[in-house]
Write a protein that binds this DNA or RNA. Structure first.
Lengths: 111, 111
DNA sequence: ATTATACATCGTAATATTGCAATAATGTAA
DNA sequence: TTACATTATTGCAATATTACGATGTATAAT
């Protein structure tokens, strides 16, 4: 159907899935990389950097903002997007929590 | 359009986006958690564990297998899915590479 | 005031994803 | 062989996502 049965899953699983969507499209990863590199960015820069239309980038930025991983402050007629440190750490912790459940030297009782 | 313009983005960004899709749906996160917990699993177990139809779970398992993060070995008429250690480490490294670009005490030159 | 710049939002078209019933395929048990 | 158990695949139907032109809004520049 295309609709996710959110109610079937644990709070953590839903949280991780939500956070993962920030990284689940290369444009958003590229945006994050760009923000991280320049440590501040504006929408019009990204239109040059990536080859996507302004409306498309604005949409991706909004998704990242909805997820909470970035925040934007108005600077005159420009927007200043940057990482939301608290949320970044939160998302980082969510993923580390998963990754750390399987380490190279895990028991390994099957295939 | 719904089509991702893969050719616009770097190899790494595309790789990360691909890997992120493993975590971008709560059912797949739940499946991974279950595999990690039991360190081996079969499809029918998951049908009990999660509330999804067998066909749906089989489909999610295939996506995880396509991404490479799990592998399945045939055991009689059952399947034994488990983590693919090499790929797991690869994906882990991809994400750590992103997360480590912003640490709590980063420069923070903007908002 | 007019024009330009920078983003956001809306509407829409196209593709992708999710979910499941039905069915196929394969192995096991009787 | 027949019947059963387990998983994969197919074929939809419904929702979600991606992309962009057009338009709206607010500030800045002339």
């Amino acid at each position: 159907m295309g609709i996710t049965k959110t109610e079937l899953f644990s709070e953590v699983d839903n949280q991780i899935a939500l956070a993962a969507k920030a990284f689940a499209h290369p444009a958003r990863v590229a945006i994050l990389h760009y923000i991280l590199k320049t440590n501040a960015c504006i929408n019009s820069d990204l239109v040059q950097e990536l080859g996507l239309a302004q409306a498309t980038i604005s949409q991706h930025l909004r998704e990242l903002k909805d997820i909470g991983i970035i925040q934007g402050t108005i600077e005159g007629s420009r927007m200043n997007y940057c990482i939301n440190p608290a949320r970044w750490e939160e998302v980082r912790a969510l993923f580390l929590g998963v990754f750390d459940q399987y380490l190279p030297g895990s028991p390994g009782g099957c295939c």
